[in-house]
């Protein structure tokens, strides 16, 4: 087993590194350990608009990234340790136990009463400490897992609060779980994440392992993947499966009269392809025209609405909220 301990905490770099190693390092088995600065990480085939609170995320400094493996949305910070096994796989269909069993056994040896839950989680009692997902390609498998060590989980709730609008799609949904941090369950509460990581490695590989680092050419190639894919709107937002959005709102105009705004949107690859806006039962062609063909997002919609006639009468923020 060769082990790479990433020194970067950039979510786009680490996800690009995972893909680069998965597709190019075919000679043996690898384990990558990495952690990210505050970020939201989506499963490969999820609809980002169904998972995150667009307004809260765009107003925050939190990065949003789509990963290469399946499953749901998770929040990462620097107290969450990610691990990725890259190994060979004869069957086209993987099982989780080949990776989860040694991980659980290593945690148990460290005194953590961890056990498998559902198909791909690790939990202490009923509370999840680790989720995992995989990608399979050409006889290789990438198994990616999280280990909640001492994460601040309160931020997540705010950023993942779903829209009040109704979204219809066939995307992969997230399953919300009750979670806990590993550190709380350790005898030694002073153990840092780095110490935990070293202990974990010793317990995972009692016979030893080889520590390697990336060379300059690897880092340059990963940089290209970051620039062309992982940091791009087209990958993070545009890959979302098509969906239908519907929301009925009541807003006050400047004379404090209530107006009914009914919005129906068709969104494909993150672009508004169909737009129906009714204000007090009448179609508003100006808004429909302004939004059709544009990206679906808080800032984008706000900007487009700001030049429409209705804004003189209804506050821009309140009008924008009708579309999110």
């Amino acid at each position: 087993m060769k082990v790479i301990d990433s020194t970067s905490t950039d979510v786009y770099f680490n996800l690009a590194m995972e893909e680069y190693l998965f597709k190019n390092f075919m000679d043996t088995d690898y384990l990558i350990l990495w952690k990210n600065h505050d970020s939201i990480v989506l499963g490969k085939h999820q609809n980002i608009f169904e998972e995150i609170n667009l307004l809260a995320v765009e107003k925050s400094e939190i990065q949003v990234a789509r990963r290469n493996t399946g499953g749901g949305t998770v929040f990462h910070d620097e107290q969450n340790l990610n691990y990725s096994f890259i190994t060979s796989q004869d069957e086209g269909f993987s099982n989780y136990d080949q990776f989860l069993t040694p991980m659980i056994s290593a945690l148990n040896k460290m005194g953590i009463p961890a056990a498998k839950r559902r198909n791909s989680d690790i939990a202490i009692g009923e509370q999840k400490i680790s989720g995992s997902a995989q990608t399979i390609k050409k006889g290789r498998v990438l198994h990616h897992g999280t280990l909640l060590y001492d994460s601040d989980l309160s931020l997540l709730k705010k950023l993942l609060k779903p829209t009040e609008g109704k979204i219809t799609s066939k995307s992969v949904k997230s399953v919300r779980s009750d979670v806990t941090n590993i550190k709380k369950h350790l005898g030694d509460l002073s153990l840092s994440l780095d110490d935990f990581k070293e202990q974990l490695l010793k317990n995972l590989f009692p016979d030893g392992f080889e520590r390697i680092s990336l060379n300059d050419a690897d880092i340059a190639a990963i940089g290209v993947l970051v620039a062309e894919k992982y940091s791009q709107w087209e990958w993070n937002y545009g890959l979302s499966p098509k969906f239908h959005f519907e929301k009925k709102s009541q807003v006050s105009d400047k004379d404090r009269q209530s107006k009914k705004v009914a919005v129906k949107l068709e969104i494909s690859k993150g672009i508004i392809t169909g737009c129906q806006v009714m204000v007090d039962g009448l179609a508003n062609a100006e808004i429909q025209e302004a939004l059709t063909g544009g990206r679906y997002g808080y800032q984008e919609i706000l900007k487009k609405l700001s030049s429409t006639g209705l804004v003189g009468n209804i506050e821009l923020d309140a009008l924008t909220a009708c579309f999110l």
Binding site: G43, N68, G70, T135
Partner: peptide, 12 residues
């Protein structure tokens, strides 16, 4: 691509 149980399989 197929996704089952959080496993993405790329089909060539």
């Amino acid at each position: 691509e197929i996704e089952t149980e959080k496993v993405v399989s790329e089909v060539e």
